[in-house]
Design a protein around this nucleic acid. Structure first.
Lengths: 178, 178
DNA sequence: TAACCCATGTAACCTGTTACATGATTAA
DNA sequence: TTAATCATGTAACAGGTTACATGGGTTA
């Protein structure tokens, strides 16, 4: 997949400008897909050339014009086709594990520092996810279908960070023992 | 990070040809970093131009010549520098979560099928990791330092797949309930 | 005789990142 | 007056994927 599918996914829920999409990719959607505004503007232009999105210019007073994008039926079809087409789980690309793989080239203290640093970041993210959960998903049983799906993505984040945190603790303990 | 650091990491453990490196990236190292042979040959040439690796041509009878690469002191220095430089945890790029995010655009059965398919792949990988563990790491307490580090990368894989499997089960259950 | 293994590469393309650029309004 | 927010982009580059190419040796 590429960013185009993520853009279609975002626009399937809500019309937006490139600027707003960039914000989404910095917030909610950004927890599982990152994109810079440059990439977003470029891909929106491409999607529009393919007829999958279209925009309407919204003038504003005292502010720059906004280009409000919406998904077209063609774009929705492509989104549905993509969702239904089976894909492999995203390949893992984990620099930290590569560092451990060659970890005998450095002092153990170097690995410990890097592990501690990453552990802290995972702990931060976990706290953030927990805050989101208690603020927006306090009562999961009462959620509508679409909200329940979002809740599931949040659970994926929570479970991932918990597991990562536990692994960092294991690695710190093991390397300290040596 | 890019592939170059992973190549240095591999060569820090063992001299190898491009072909052998491609095999490593299809096996052990490949569990946390993927690379195609095209990319490997290209990056080896770049690393050699930078003086971080060097090769020796090994003629063979009845087979093509091999270029055996080894890491240079300069390359080892760069590897050590890279390992010691703090990095953010790899950003999550998860197409499946993007699919759920826009999951209200398709029938629930479509999501269930995709989740079941991914669940099966995670179960496969988990089994594979467990097989590696019982074959090569039956007695973790007796491992030398470098082996212990490899064992930690294996634990990361095991924990990741277990957690992913549990999440797929949660998602299947939740979507079935609707 | 067909397919696979060994072993190397080139070229085109797609995707993602970084740097640069504009220009008005608003809050500290 | 400095920085941040709103809102759009271009250009160059780095990294990753796919397709194409060669050619002998081995196994089914």
């Amino acid at each position: 997949m590429s960013l185009s599918h993520a853009l279609l996914a975002a626009l399937s829920q809500q019309c937006a400008t490139g600027y707003e999409l960039a914000q989404h990719f910095d917030g909610c959607l950004g927890h599982f897909w990152k994109a810079s505004h440059q990439q977003i503007y470029r891909d929106l232009a491409k999607l529009e050339a393919q007829g999958q999105v279209q925009h309407e210019v919204m003038p504003q007073v005292g502010k720059p014009e906004r280009k409000l994008y919406q998904i077209t039926p063609l774009g929705l079809g492509e989104l549905q086709r993509w969702i239904a087409s089976p894909a492999d789980p995203s390949p893992i690309r984990d620099a930290l594990l590569v560092k451990l793989y060659a970890g005998n080239c450095v002092e153990p203290a170097v690995l410990l520092a890097e592990l501690a640093q990453q552990r802290a970041q995972h702990a931060n993210r976990l706290e953030m996810y927990q805050a989101i959960e208690s603020q927006y998903f306090a009562d999961p049983a009462s959620l509508a279908y679409a909200q329940r799906l979002i809740w599931l993505t949040l659970q994926a984040g929570l479970m991932y960070e918990q597991q990562r945190l536990a692994w960092c603790d294991l690695a710190l303990k093991e390397i300290n023992r040596c």
